[in-house]
Design a binder for these strands. Structure first.
Lengths: 221, 221
DNA sequence: ATTTTTTTAGACATCCTTGTCTAAAAAGTC
DNA sequence: GACTTTTTAGACAAGGATGTCTAAAAAAAT
């Protein structure tokens, strides 16, 4: 019996659950590249290495497949964000270096990552057409995630490391600053390399700390 | 004869040149709403109040129509940007108020405007598929326009109103900051009202001047 | 008023896509 | 090894879109 289960575990990965995720992954890529209208099921099936019928077998509809893609993507990105947020420097050694490192992680794991890029593009392309689909993202993403980031900054300010009046504004501005240098690349879909991400983070944190840092960081010399 | 010309002037608006722009305008709306693949010529013809054949008459192809839309849009947005840039406060009275007012104009005329929103969305949705189409935008927009904004900030710094080391970075950060509070709305396509635009500009300029302002603005009290 | 151009409505062929269906093959289960 | 479920390839109908064509109507020009 143990043998049966074991062999099932080994062979299963390419057979039911794995086909499901294979289809989801392929669908994510194709929907992002082509948009909902431009994507076609045959493309997705081919890219997943699966017959068309199998796609219809797992996800009834093109529309329901799309919904599944968006949900999975939203959850993954959200989880990734909170995982990264857990590395926020609550007790910084060198505040500037720690913030730069955090900004690099945030950019690389959440914003410039494949998932981040895909989700952003899907929201842009299909957000107006399927408002209810992205309502969940709106609540969880900007609603919860950004508030959580703001809370971290508030704590940092309370501990005397920063001088912040409105933590929500500071959090939004932090996020805006660390992507300021990457907007063009991201709009056109290409992945900035590590050097550019690091440079962007450095520029951002310098400005952020000039604005919100305590005396030690304020002097502009 | 004067009569003929006059009546021609009155009737003409709906007849040749005007049909062209009517089609272009409708196509812009439809392509932005539906994406290139999702848009269909009948929709565009109907929205332009024109028969389908007339669309094919003015623009050979669906693809060529799309190209014309992107070109017209790029030119309009660029012109709008430079028109707004001409109102940059080179000789500011109250620097903070003047910058806020400029930021409001920039947001309203260029970034949150219908054209700005459309161009941004088109770049997002079709930028990867038609890279050569948006190469022109890349050169003119981020290449020229942002450099021009940077030059204005450099002048302001040179005149002793700001303390800026890298004007290009400062310009990008200014742009990032004034849209920081509007990202969610803009991603989902809805137009922020004047009050929100003003608030966003105020938040942005306060932080910008804390980072780049001379002593008078640096104190954080 | 006549002539020329533009526009229109609609029919049309062609292609593509969706979603269903079927019979055969593969995989998994007992 | 026999049985059941999943998968596959391909045919298929139905619908939608593009782009062409034609004959009639409208508009412009002379």
């Amino acid at each position: 019996m143990a043998l049966t289960v074991a062999s099932a575990d080994i062979c299963a990965p390419r057979s039911h659950a794995a086909k499901r995720s294979s289809i989801l992954e392929a669908a994510t890529h194709v929907f992002c590249r082509e948009g909902f209208a431009g994507a076609n099921i045959d493309m997705i099936a081919a890219e997943a290495g699966v017959s068309r019928q199998t796609v219809y077998n797992h996800h009834v509809d093109k529309e329901q497949l799309f919904v599944a893609v968006v949900q999975a993507l939203t959850e993954r990105v959200n989880a990734g964000f909170f995982a990264t947020l857990a590395t926020f420097p609550d007790h910084p050694g060198k505040l500037d270096e720690d913030l730069v490192a955090f900004a690099v992680r945030l950019n690389r794991n959440c914003i410039c990552s494949g998932d981040g890029k895909f989700l952003r593009k899907l929201i842009h392309t299909e957000g107006e057409r399927y408002p209810e689909l992205f309502a969940a993202w709106r609540e969880q993403g900007p609603g919860k995630a950004w508030a959580a980031l703001a809370a971290r900054f508030a704590r940092l300010a309370h501990a005397g490391h920063l001088d912040i009046d409105d933590p929500d504004v500071a959090a939004r501005q932090f996020q805006a600053l660390i992507t300021a240098d990457l907007h063009v690349s991201m709009m056109l879909g290409d992945q900035p390399d590590d050097e550019r991400i690091r440079q962007a983070a450095t520029n951002a944190v310098r400005t952020f700390l000039r604005a919100y840092g305590k005396a030690a960081f304020s002097p502009q010399a």
